[in-house]
Design a protein around this nucleic acid. Structure first.
Length: 274
DNA sequence: AGGTCGACCTGGCAGC
DNA sequence: TGCTGCCAGGTCGACC
């Protein structure tokens, strides 16, 4: 079993594919096979709110997929670690938790092996607390060296831990946090407030470079995600440090190390990230 | 209020 | 073989 571990680049890839596939389609029926994935208070409300709605847009905020409807309201999907949105024929797997029947005879399947992910329907985006609380999009204008420099100063936690904090900046997860810090040449243990001006500039540039490269390669592991072109995420072949403990650094040959920060694995090169 | 840690889940896998 | 316990990681809430 291969999982996707969706972070910003993976969710962005899903968003782009779904935009192409489901905009304009109506939801004819909703089959909930496990109501634990539905965040709304009442299951019947969730189903009746979505039936007969027509998809107007598919967007992304951080790692959250936001599907909007012509009639108003939003379907929010947070895939957490093992959630998948798969378009095509109706699936009947053990991990298929919700199935949407669409108007062109195809289906949108929500799979979630470990049940961490959640679907919800909200009338307004403000009704979702997560959306009100998360930080800026790293690939948009509000995120820049001045903003970083100003906000890093206030935080004493390690820079790796801070990059994972969705309230600080949206969309970065455990894989890309390690990759970004390696690319920037910054030690993951360094307190955010102690980054030099030069390191802040590197962090900004590496965040953009790594996330853009990952999106270009369709993320890390979308092997179970089917789209019209049948492509898979290929960024895992390009990671510099993630999951590469005891393997040589691609830059200097030093063995990549793994350590645990706040219960999460961090991969880094001791020599390149002083 | 910032920081830390366990809970939520399931299955693969190492070790005995 | 079969058991135990660790590991994967996003987010929330409890606690200091």
């Amino acid at each position: 079993m291969i999982f996707s571990m969706p972070e910003l680049p993976e969710v962005e890839t899903i968003k782009r594919d779904l935009s192409r596939l489901i905009i304009g389609q109506g939801i004819e029926d909703v089959f909930v096979r496990d109501d634990r994935v539905i965040k709304s208070h009442k299951l019947n409300d969730f189903i009746s709110s979505l039936k007969s709605k027509t998809v107007q847009g598919v967007d992304r905020r951080g790692k959250l997929i936001v599907i909007s409807f012509k009639e108003g309201g939003y379907l929010l999907a947070h895939l957490k670690m093992t959630g998948q949105l798969i378009y095509g024929e109706r699936l009947n797997l053990k991990e298929t938790k919700v199935v949407f029947k669409l108007s062109r005879g195809q289906y949108l399947n929500y799979n979630d092996h470990r049940l961490f992910g959640r679907l919800s329907f909200v009338r307004q985006l403000q009704d979702e607390p997560f959306l009100n609380a998360i930080g800026p999009e790293p690939l948009k204008n509000g995120f820049n060296t001045e903003w970083l420099s100003r906000n890093l100063k206030r935080r004493s936690v390690s820079i790796k831990t801070l990059l994972l904090d969705q309230h600080f900046v949206a969309g970065i997860g455990n894989i890309y946090a390690s990759e970004i810090l390696f690319d920037a040449g910054i030690n993951p243990l360094k307190p955010a407030s102690r980054l030099t001006k030069k390191e802040v500039a590197s962090l900004y540039q590496s965040t953009l470079d790594i996330l853009r490269e990952a999106i270009q390669y369709r993320g890390c592991s979308m092997r179970n995600y089917r789209d019209a072109s049948g492509e898979e995420g290929k960024f895992l072949n390009r990671v510099r440090v993630y999951n590469r403990e005891h393997q040589p650094c691609r830059v200097c040959g030093t063995m990549i190390q793994r350590m645990v920060q706040n219960g999460r694995s961090t991969y880094f090169c001791q020599r390149c990230q002083q």
